[in-house]
Write a protein that binds this DNA or RNA. Structure first.
Lengths: 208, 208
DNA sequence: GGAGATAGAATAAACGTTCGCTCTAATCAA
DNA sequence: TTGATTAGAGCGAACGTTTATTCTATCTCC
């Protein structure tokens, strides 16, 4: 019990540090957050941070990785749903919108994406996960949906959710209930059930 | 001609500085960009920046304001379109997607929004413009579209465009032609023509 | 020669990181 | 059961660098 107790304590401190850093990053941005601030938030000395992490950069990278891993876990329920993937999506829509509009999460996502535009290390973490997740979702959807451009359809869905998160920052008064109702319509428009008509070719029946 | 020439020269230098700052902000972020870097990019000494701006903060604010003003100008064509607003939107879709996916613009938008989550001055600039633009677009749409929750529909459209910009950062291989085609369908789904059926109540005809 | 444009050194604060130290607790020798 | 040894948690002052900003001097037209 002796050794494991120390290890547990050490692990607990490291975790506390990561969560403190996360709060600071959301409050001040990756570059605005100061090591001293993070140390204070984690209730440890600035110097001691370097027992757990080599640099601020490494804290950022590890935090990003932890979050994308967490999102991946969510995927498994869709894979189990097989051909019922779209139905599952529609059923869970309210939850999805809620998690998209969580201010903490959307601020963090924003910060991570902004960092990815200039920090190749962060970009590659984000891109790799993104690609893997998209591939797995695509595999589910291709069983359930009968439409061309399936990958682009999925892109638009992700775009919509990420966009809703951003909109909620600029306009916190967003009517979420109405949004859920309308997104449902959009999802059913983008992912028509297999065997259904009315959506194979989305070139609209208007002139030109 | 003497005074105006000097003023023009001064104005030119200020403009050059703003554009240099913009490039630096995109490359390094608001907090990552250094005054020395901006000065070098604008081909002037670091100290001279303070002839034109009181602080870095003020440069950021002014740049944000310039960009939102520019976007507002685009609005007028929609107001002139009156009841044909949706048609105009559909016709200009390719252009809209192109401008959303411009890496420079989307990175800047990302940076501005991230900054807005923690800097109240930036947040209020962004929010004020956002609200005004939304109001004006809504006025056009209410003539042309027959649907409830019109404001939320517009929110979703904006969300979709902003989201596409972000997606393009994480996945530059996005098929834009397909995206345009699909977005067209979504727009027509969200904004059914006045007098058209099939969209008054978006509660989908599925069980539960 | 005078006023604004411009440069570039100077400044002072703030930053991430390092370093030397203490303290606690576990392990081991006797 | 002790006393010595070791390992790592933890502290906080100090370091060297970098930063935004200020200051002073020079230059350029009128």
């Amino acid at each position: 019990m002796a050794v494991s107790e120390a290890a547990a304590k050490s692990g607990e401190a490291r975790e506390r540090l990561l969560q403190a850093a996360e709060r600071c990053f959301v409050a001040s941005g990756f570059h605005g957050a100061r090591m001293a601030q993070i140390a204070k938030e984690a209730r440890m000395s600035p110097g001691h941070i370097y027992h757990y992490f080599e640099s601020k950069e490494q804290i950022i990278a590890e935090m990003v990785r932890a979050h994308v891993d967490e999102k991946q876990a969510m995927l498994e329920s869709y894979e189990r749903a097989g051909g019922r993937a779209v139905e599952l999506m529609v059923e869970n829509l309210e939850e999805s919108v809620d998690s998209s509009t969580d201010p903490f999460w959307s601020a963090l996502m924003l910060e991570m994406t902004a960092e990815a535009t200039r920090n190749p290390a962060i970009a590659s973490i984000l891109r790799a996960t993104d690609e893997e997740m998209k591939g797995r979702v695509l595999a589910c959807l291709s069983e359930a949906v009968d439409a061309d451009d399936l990958e682009t359809r999925l892109e638009l869905l992700i775009a919509l959710f990420q966009g809703i998160g951003i909109r909620n920052i600029l306009n916190p008064g967003l009517d979420k209930a109405a949004a859920v109702r309308l997104v449902r319509g959009v999802v059913e428009h983008l992912f028509p059930k297999s065997g259904s008509a009315a959506a194979e070719s989305p070139r609209a029946p208007n002139k030109r």
